[in-house]
Amino acid sequence: MITKDEVEHVGWLARIEIDEQDADSYAAHLNTVLEYFGQLDEVDMENVDPTYHVMDVVNVFRKDVVTESLTQEEALENTKSRQDGHFKAPKIM
């Protein structure tokens, strides 16, 4: 069971602002789904390795050769706020 407090903590981890009353409904929704996920507990997984990549490929590398970058304008054109060639954001703390 995920509690309301946990929902708020996860909301912070995920940087999604959740207000008091929404936390309840999120908790309810999340618990329904988590309960469904719980059925995996039935499966015998001893000696089963996890599959992170479905195709068995290793060692994919790139040569150390320079390719074209974006222009400064292309880099910045989608931001809401910029200054002197920089992205501009609110202070951190």
Binding site: Q83, D84, H86, A89, P90, M93
Partner: peptide, 12 residues
């Protein structure tokens, strides 16, 4: 300074 900043400029 970091704790009394007015904003952040970012260069990637």
């Amino acid at each position: 300074s970091i704790d009394k900043s007015k904003g952040t400029m970012i260069d990637y």
